[in-house]
Simulated scan of single mutants.
Amino acid sequence: MKKNLLSIIILALLVVNIGMTAFMMLSVMTTNSQTAKLISDIAAALELEANGGNTGGFSGSASGNVGVSNIATFGFTGDDQLTINLKPGSDGKAHYMLVEVVFSMNTASADYATLGTSESLAGMRELIKGKVTNTLSSYTIEELQADDGPAKEKILEEVQELYNSNFIYDVTFSSVLYQ
């Protein structure tokens, strides 16, 4: 009789345990779905801000993703690579960087037809070179080695302001040598 009573108590506890587990799973799942929705809303808002919104801002690529067939590049590569004196670092020594800078252009942009031509780019080459040099020379070697993203963003902003257009949507350092 004691064995049967013990079995009934264990069975009752198992049923209560299953009920409580089901209740906890339902409450966790609803909280999880609400959290996931909040995170996706925040991510969507940050993506709009990173791309300059729909207002046509010049920072980032307001045109969204650019197809491979709509990309053209120009830059300072090969014999035209740039040697830039950097701001003295924590060691107090003068450093420089040898860098190849490549700008990506959206050929589907309305401004590309007039501003992205070889003649137009050649005429602005020295101004763009000055923007790149001035921007990179304001960083230390430690800052650039840790993360060159802010420098690229700053260069992109200045070049987009120079052209008053966002047909240039990306800056890449294809080769970097620090000394």
Rank of each mutant, 00 (worst) to 15 (best):
T83G: 08
S69F: 10
L26A: 10
M105W: 00
V28T: 05
A113F: 03
A50R: 15
A50W: 14
G64C: 10
V99T: 10
G52N: 02
S40E: 06
A146G: 09
F74P: 00
T140E: 10
A50G: 07
I84G: 03
Y169V: 01
N4P: 02
S40I: 11
Q34R: 15
G89H: 14
I155N: 00
M105H: 02
G116H: 02
S109H: 15
N32A: 11
N106M: 09
T55K: 07
L136C: 15
I9T: 09
S120H: 04
D41K: 10
L46P: 00
N164E: 12
A12W: 15
Y178E: 06
E143F: 08
A94S: 06
L127H: 08
T117E: 05
V99H: 03
L82I: 11
T31H: 13
D80R: 09
R125S: 07
M124A: 14
G60T: 11
V66D: 01
Q81T: 04
S165A: 15
A151D: 04
Q145N: 11
K129I: 01
L156E: 07
V176H: 02
N32D: 09
K87W: 10
I141F: 12
S104E: 12
Y96G: 02
V176D: 01
Y96F: 05
S7D: 13
N70Y: 12
A110M: 05
S27W: 06
R125F: 04
G53T: 13
V99K: 00
A110C: 01
K87Q: 15
N32V: 05
K152D: 03
L115Q: 12
G57C: 04
I168T: 07
T55P: 00
S109G: 04
V102I: 12
L86K: 05
K131L: 13
V159N: 03
G64L: 12
D170S: 09
G116K: 01
E47A: 15
A45R: 13
S109V: 08
L136G: 11
Y112L: 09
Q179W: 02
K87R: 15
Y163V: 05
T73F: 06
A122Y: 03
E143T: 12
K2T: 10
A36S: 13
N106W: 06
M20L: 15
I155F: 02
L6R: 13
K2A: 15
D79F: 08
L38H: 13
G67R: 06
G60L: 08
S27Q: 12
G19Q: 14
L127M: 09
T83F: 08
